[in-house]
């Protein structure tokens, strides 16, 4: 319940128009701060939803695969340059962002992460490492403007943001694979 409240407060805070406008004004913050925070708010709120509808999750997400796929689809969708632009210009798109990231990405992530095997987790990490590296390369190397609402320098910055996040994830996975983590649980 405490977690749900924290999540809700975070979610409402992010919904505040000035906060949203501020976070969206800088491309990298839009992508790597606002969106992850939205997912986090859903992740926190998920606890209550899980308790309210335990059967639904048990029935339809028994091995965690559908949930993690939904999470990935939503995340990849918001990584398309166009969607980020449209979130700024089209209201329906903005609305979809505020619904999909917490409830279609954050909630299923919470429910699925514990259910999927470590091989499954590693493949999720690897997929996103590759995707992030590719996106990073795309944004850094692109000579033209990919997002109409942001400056070129924002775009390059976002590219390096993707690359550093990919590196961080890679380090995390490497230490997971080579370290013995059985005792940290």
């Amino acid at each position: 319940m405490k977690q749900f409240l924290y999540g809700l407060v975070l979610y409402l805070f992010l919904l505040l128009p000035p906060v949203a406008a501020l976070l969206e004004s800088i491309m990298i913050i839009h992508m790597h701060m606002q969106m992850p925070l939205l997912i986090l708010s859903g992740f926190l709120m998920a606890r209550l939803i899980q308790l309210k509808f335990p059967d639904f999750f048990r029935k339809w997400n028994s091995n965690g695969v559908p949930g993690i796929m939904l999470f990935s689809i939503i995340l990849v969708y918001w990584m398309i340059p166009r969607t980020m632009d449209e979130a700024l210009t089209i209201e329906a798109s903005e609305l979809f962002k505020f619904i999909s990231l917490p409830f279609l990405a954050g909630v299923p992530l919470r429910d699925s992460w514990k259910k999927i095997s470590s091989a499954g987790k590693n493949s999720v990490f690897i997929i996103f490492i590759i995707l992030f590296s590719l996106m990073g390369w795309l944004y850094i190397a692109a000579d033209e403007q990919i997002c109409n609402n942001y400056l070129r320098v924002d775009q390059i910055t976002l590219g390096w943001g993707y690359v550093t996040m990919a590196v961080c994830m890679a380090i995390y996975v490497i230490q997971l694979i080579f370290g013995d983590h059985s005792e940290y649980k």
Binding site: Y77, I80, P81, R82, T83, D85, E86, T89, E144, Q145, I146, C147, N148, N149
Partner: peptide, 11 residues
């Protein structure tokens, strides 16, 4: 979202 897999950027 992409006009039938045609348009991946707003441009």
């Amino acid at each position: 979202g992409t006009d039938g897999f045609r348009a991946f950027t707003a441009e």
